[in-house]
Simulated assay, not measured.
Amino acid sequence: MLASASPARLSVLRAAGTSPLVSVSQVDEDAVLAALGPGATHEDSVTELARAKARDVVSRIVSDGAVPGRAVVIGCDSMLSIDGELVGKPHTPDVAAARWRAMRGRTGRLLTGHCAVLLDDGAVAGEAVGTGATTLRFGAPSDAEIEAYVATGEPLQVAGAFTLDGLGGWFIEGIDGDPSSVIGISLPLTRDLLTSLGVDVIALWTAGG
């Protein structure tokens, strides 16, 4: 089960041979970050957000008794680390345009926190967390290109105001790391987390789960 409303994450998992159910978490992300305090690293921040999202969905599943047998809940959170700042979704056109003007021609690290929780007969049987980091080299779109991109609405609801697998791909010159992590969920890292919980990823292909 995917604890995320992200269509990009769902698309990655489906393309990788699974058909996860989706249950969107109701976590107050600002409250989670505030609880971490000013000393938290960028990696800590995305990892704890992913953990909070997964646990929120798990608590509702366990309370409702909705998933008998074995199941896995995966929570993720992505943010861009650039110039010492951790950048999330811009939400507004003005913020998205300003971010693109600031980061064009620069390099940043897209961090994606992951949390996998194993349920067995309605109870939590294990949890594993990790963070994927991929370095991105941004192109230098013109002001007109930035305005046109922002006007599409695509960058408003994605971490760092860009996508790799959409229109934003025109303005990404290169990446060093896992491309699936940039899209929203790292397949290699998720496999490692599932393996640590005793879940065979190949079984998810055949089960479609």
Rank of each mutant, 00 (worst) to 15 (best):
Arg51Thr: 14
Glu145Tyr: 09
Pro141Tyr: 08
Leu10Ala: 13
Ile185Gln: 02
Ala161His: 05
Asp77Val: 06
Asp28Arg: 01
Arg60Pro: 04
Lys53Phe: 08
Ala128Tyr: 02
Gly75Asn: 08
Leu80Ala: 09
Gly130Arg: 05
Lys89Ala: 04
His114Pro: 05
Ser19Glu: 15
Gly169His: 06
Arg51Tyr: 04
Leu36Ala: 04
Asp143Ile: 08
Ala31Leu: 12
Val87Thr: 11
Ala96Arg: 06
Arg99Gly: 05
Ala66Asn: 07
Ser6Met: 06
Ile172Cys: 03
Ser11Val: 00
Ser196His: 08
Trp205Tyr: 03
Trp205Asn: 15
Pro93Ala: 11
Leu118Trp: 03
Lys53Pro: 10
Ser45Asp: 01
Ile82Gly: 00
Ser23Cys: 06
Leu13Tyr: 04
Val67Tyr: 12
Ser19Phe: 04
Leu187Phe: 01
Arg60Glu: 07
Ala97His: 11
Ser81Ile: 00
Ala140Asn: 12
Thr41Gln: 06
Val199Phe: 01
Gly209Arg: 14
Val158Glu: 01
Trp170His: 13
Gly177Lys: 10
Ser81Lys: 02
Arg70Val: 13
Thr18Leu: 13
Ala125Gly: 02
Ile146Met: 12
Arg55Val: 09
Gly75Cys: 08
Leu167Ala: 11
Ala34Arg: 12
Gly174Tyr: 02
Ala50Gly: 10
Ser19Pro: 00
Asp56Glu: 03
Ala52Thr: 10
Gly130Asn: 10
Arg109His: 10
Gly65His: 06
Glu147Asn: 11
Asp44Phe: 08
Gly65Asp: 13
Val24His: 09
Thr92Ile: 01
Ser180Phe: 01
Asp30Ala: 15
Arg104Ser: 02
Ser45Leu: 00
Ser59Ala: 15
Thr195Ile: 06
Arg106Gly: 03
Gly37Asp: 12
Ile175Glu: 04
Phe171Met: 13
Asp178Pro: 08
Thr112Ser: 14
Glu127Val: 15
Ala128Asp: 12
Thr18Pro: 02
Asp28Thr: 03
Glu173Thr: 12
Asp200Ile: 04
Val95Met: 10
Arg191His: 14
Ala31Ser: 15
Gln157Ile: 01
Asp64Ala: 15
Ala116Met: 05
Thr206Arg: 15
His91Cys: 00
Val57Ile: 04
Arg9Gln: 05
Gly209Pro: 00
Pro38Gln: 11
Leu111Ala: 07
Val12Arg: 02
